[in-house]
């Protein structure tokens, strides 16, 4: 009997989530021999990203791609991946998600929330942009009104960088940037192109301060409907899709940045990161101290994976 898996996401069909989803769909249907039918539901059609996690807990949606910072309200430990400069480089990140830390996160998340993490997905760096000036040193961040998602860690990070963070809902963001209510913001590189922010944000700053993860989750209701064999096949499909897509994205990010400079007319700067990393470490420490032992332990596990 064919089982339908409704997988939602908040971005358009041809976005990164949509492409990741398409690979997952193909692999799942291949591995399960067509017994699991993945249906991708783009553009907030079945639930917004903010509500997607809850929808999986309720069992109204079977799977969802959710940016990590939108998981934090439901599972505060997720904020470790939101910490600035928590991953030293792409290899470190890969070791974390594929290793015991990744396994620990999956198990703990399932226990605390009843939601399965199928794949961490590609690592997307958030690139910073603004309309005021090129940023070459941390001093250039001073006083810039920066839109951030409503996430305490992100707010604290931009404060530590010397900017003036303004929490704004995504729905208000394009307008606020366009009219100059805020001076800038940060997003996954592709978003800057897809949302045409380059039209009114002349300065592109490569800080790689946040890794924006868009993991694929699945509801317990759905996973329980599967046979043991199907469950293994779906999980394998998710992991393989994640790896395959990460590879694609890695080369692409640099292409998009080039595009933003040549076609989009943005001025790119690659500031020295030492000051930013130092500021980020104070944020890491203060957040960890605030969140308690469990959080500190996880940060330590991640740091240990760097060696």
């Amino acid at each position: 009997q064919e089982i339908t898996m409704n997988v939602g996401f908040g971005a358009p069909e041809d976005s990164l989530y949509g492409r990741f989803g398409a690979i997952f769909e193909e692999l799942t249907e291949e591995y399960t021999g067509g017994t699991v039918d993945v249906r991708l539901r783009c553009c907030n059609q079945v639930s917004t990203e903010d509500e997607g996690f809850r929808a999986m807990q309720l069992g109204t949606v079977d799977g969802f791609f959710i940016t990590a910072n939108n998981v934090s309200p439901h599972w505060p430990l997720m904020d470790v991946t939101v910490l600035p400069y928590i991953f030293q480089n792409t290899d470190h990140l890969a070791r974390v998600v594929d290793g015991e830390v990744g396994d620990f996160i999956r198990a703990q998340l399932l226990e605390d929330t009843g939601v399965h993490l199928l794949s961490f997905g590609p690592a997307l760096y958030r690139d910073f942009y603004n309309s005021v000036r090129p940023v070459n040193t941390m001093a250039d961040m001073d006083g810039l009104k920066i839109r951030t998602p409503n996430n305490a860690v992100m707010l604290a990070t931009f404060e530590a960088f010397g900017a003036n963070p303004v929490p704004l809902a995504w729905s208000e963001t394009p307008t606020a940037l366009q009219t100059g209510t805020v001076d800038g913001g940060d997003n996954g590189t592709a978003f800057i192109r897809d949302m045409s922010f380059y039209e009114f944000m002349p300065n592109l700053v490569i800080l790689e301060h946040f890794v924006s993860m868009a993991p694929l989750f699945a509801s317990s209701t759905f996973m329980d409907r599967l046979s043991d064999e199907q469950r293994e096949q779906v999980m394998r499909a998710a992991i393989d899709a994640g790896n395959q897509f990460s590879e694609e994205v890695r080369t692409e990010t640099e292409e998009v940045r080039q595009w933003l400079v040549t076609e989009g007319g943005m001025t790119r700067t690659d500031p020295d990161r030492a000051d930013f990393i130092a500021a980020a470490q104070t944020v890491q420490q203060s957040v960890a101290a605030e969140r308690g032992q469990e959080f500190v332990d996880l940060v330590n596990m991640i740091n240990a994976a760097a060696e």
Binding site: R54, Q57, L58, S72, P73, H74, P76, D112, T113, G114, N150, N151, A152, P167
Partner: peptide, 15 residues
């Protein structure tokens, strides 16, 4: 039923 789920898996508003 919905509130029961909210109670079982508490979440906190971001700000």
């Amino acid at each position: 039923d919905y509130l029961a789920v909210l109670w079982k898996f508490p979440s906190h508003s971001p700000s």
